[in-house]
Design a protein around this nucleic acid. Structure first.
Lengths: 149, 149
DNA sequence: CTTCCTGCAAAAGTTTTGCATTAAC
DNA sequence: GTTAATGCAAAACTTTTGCAGGAAG
């Protein structure tokens, strides 16, 4: 699930969001967003550090925090040692994750539109009944991938 | 979503699972499972330590690890500082979580049976097409709870 | 009497923060 | 020239582990 936007519009969007927060679109940040867009699945910190040459750990965390604040990056919750990061759904479109419980591999996957719509409205009704408002959902599939089974 | 089993059968089940692994159902472990059963939603470490008097942090983590290994407890993945723990679905039944993005409060919630069934079969088909086998799902609803909106 | 459990303290590991320097606007 | 970004090192934080003493079967 790479960026649904062409590269040019993608970078302009990111730059605009950063500018609006008084932040800059530095080369490091550009490398990070490009990497996340290219990967197509959440990346862990070691992979990010390895892929972006000359990137310090502290700078990586700081840049990802900034990108998260402006709605470009999302921290993905996993049960592994390192946090994973991906572009927000505003940039990539709504999707879910296929997680291999053996090797930890994560793949993006989209639901058929009709199922997604039905699920969404059902969940909205359910949540409202429980007193929760403006609900989004996070759906992960956990199984064993081709290589691990 | 407290235990669906009566207290007696519940404790016998837990004891049997521990025994089968050569482990004991000590008072501390009993307090922990009772607490998790009573709460009805995932609990974080500080809450567990506070609720179970005389429980050390290291013992808490160790006991929860043992209970996890024998399939009684599940570590819940969140984006908060401390890990959360709940009873496994084998003991409580399949359910999902309503998470308040403001205060972090977590509530258990079940989907209507027909939707759950439809979702499950759709996801199974989807996963198989992607080369994933024996898939379970994790569905969380994120919104703002009554008190925070 | 052997095996497991507990508490204390220290270690491990990821993530965050302080501070001086460098780069961007 | 003012404000933000970077790198290095040290700190903070949750979780894990070692070890000695105590409890359970």
């Amino acid at each position: 699930m790479a960026a649904t936007l062409p590269a040019r519009a993608f970078h302009e969007t990111v730059a605009a969001r950063l500018r609006a927060a008084g932040q800059r679109y530095t080369p490091q940040r550009r490398s990070i967003t490009e990497l996340l867009a290219a990967g197509g699945s959440p990346l862990a910190m070691p992979a990010i550090l390895e892929a972006v040459g000359g990137l310090t750990q502290s700078s990586a965390y700081r840049n990802l925090a900034v990108l998260e604040q402006v709605g470009v990056v999302r921290r993905v919750i996993t049960d592994e040692d390192f946090a994973h990061f991906e572009l927000t759904e505003e940039l990539t479109g709504h999707h879910h994750h296929l997680v291999c419980s053996v090797c930890g591999r994560v793949e993006d996957v989209a639901l058929p539109a009709d199922l997604e719509a039905r699920l969404d409205s059902s969940l909205d009704r359910l949540a409202r009944r429980a007193g929760f408002a403006s609900v989004r959902h996070r759906l992960d599939l956990i199984g064993t991938c081709r290589d691990c089974s």
